[in-house]
C-alpha cells in the first residue's frame, strides 16, 4: 500500500482538493503534477461546466467547486469523502442514498449538488459515531436491523425522518382517515419505509428498531 502523497488531505480536512472539484480557498494543494494528463485537453466548448456551491453538512460549512453534473450523493461520497451515504442504484430506485436536507429525507442521487446552495444536509455521519451512536443507530444494532449494512445508513436517515413526518401529521398511503392525524402503527412504518430497499431482508427487525425509538417519550 502506497503512502498518501503530499497533496492528499485527510478525511477530516475541511477542504479536499481533486482535479475537478477544487476546494475554494485551497491554492497550492491541488497541484496534480504526479497525475498523468488527460488524453485531450478540454476545449472551451466541451469542457465540463463548473459551478460553486456551499452548503452545511453535519454542522460544517463546505464549499465546493464542482462539475455541474455532480449529484449531491457524489459530492458527499467522492468530494467530501462522506461515504456513509451509499450508492445502490443511482436512479432513485433503492433509497440507499437517503439523507436529510432541511429536515426532510431525500434521495441524494437524484438531486444536483449545485442545487443545494445554503442547504443544511445531515448524513449518517452527522447522526452519530461508533462511540456515540444516535438512538436510532443503537436501536438498529440492538435489533439487528441490518445485515450487509449497505442500505443501513439510508434506512436510518429515513427512519429518523419518518418519525418526524408522522409527528408533523403527514399522511401516508395506509392512513385510514385523511382528516385525522396519522398514528404510529406498524403498518404506517412499513409503508413509509418502503422507499428503502433491504435485499438482505432485515425489514422485520428494522420495524422493531424504529418502534422502540418511536415508543420513547420525546
Amino acid at each position: 500500500m502506497r503512502k498518501p502523497s503530499a497533496f492528499e488531505m485527510s478525511r477530516r480536512n475541511l477542504l479536499i482538493g481533486t482535479a475537478t472539484s477544487v476546494a475554494i480557498g485551497a491554492t497550492s494543494a491541488q497541484a496534480q503534477n504526479s497525475v498523468p494528463q488527460p488524453l485531450a485537453a478540454a476545449t472551451a466548448a466541451d469542457a465540463p461546466a463548473m459551478a460553486t456551491v456551499s452548503f452545511n453538512v453535519n454542522g460544517e460549512v463546505r464549499a465546493l467547486k464542482l462539475d455541474t453534473r455532480t449529484t449531491l450523493l457524489d459530492a458527499l461520497r467522492e468530494h467530501l469523502h462522506l461515504t456513509g451515504t451509499k450508492k445502490g442504484c443511482d436512479h432513485g430506485q433503492c433509497g440507499a442514498c437517503a439523507v436529510i436536507v432541511g429536515g426532510q429525507r431525500i434521495n441524494s442521487c437524484l438531486t444536483l449538488a449545485v442545487m443545494h446552495e445554503g442547504d443544511s444536509v445531515t448524513t449518517i455521519e452527522g447522526l452519530g459515531t461508533p462511540e456515540h451512536m444516535h438512538p436510532m443507530q443503537a436501536a438498529f444494532v440492538k435489533h439487528d436491523g441490518f445485515q450487509c449494512g449497505y442500505c443501513t445508513p439510508g434506512q436510518i436517515c429515513s427512519a429518523v425522518a419518518v418519525l418526524d413526518e408522522i409527528k408533523a401529521g403527514i399522511p401516508s398511503h395506509v392512513t385510514d382517515d385523511l382528516n385525522v392525524a396519522p398514528e404510529l402503527t406498524n403498518a404506517e412504518l412499513r409503508e413509509r419505509m418502503s422507499g428503502n430497499i433491504c435485499r438482505c431482508g432485515a425489514y422485520s427487525n428494522i420495524a422493531e428498531a424504529i418502534t422502540e425509538i418511536a415508543g420513547r417519550p420525546a
Partner: peptide, 19 residues
Amino acid sequence: YGLLSRALLAGASGQLRNK
C-alpha cells in the same frame, strides 16, 4: 380533494415525494 392526496401518497416513496 381526498382523491388527490390518495393518488399522491400511492406514488413513489416518501423521499421522492419530498422532492
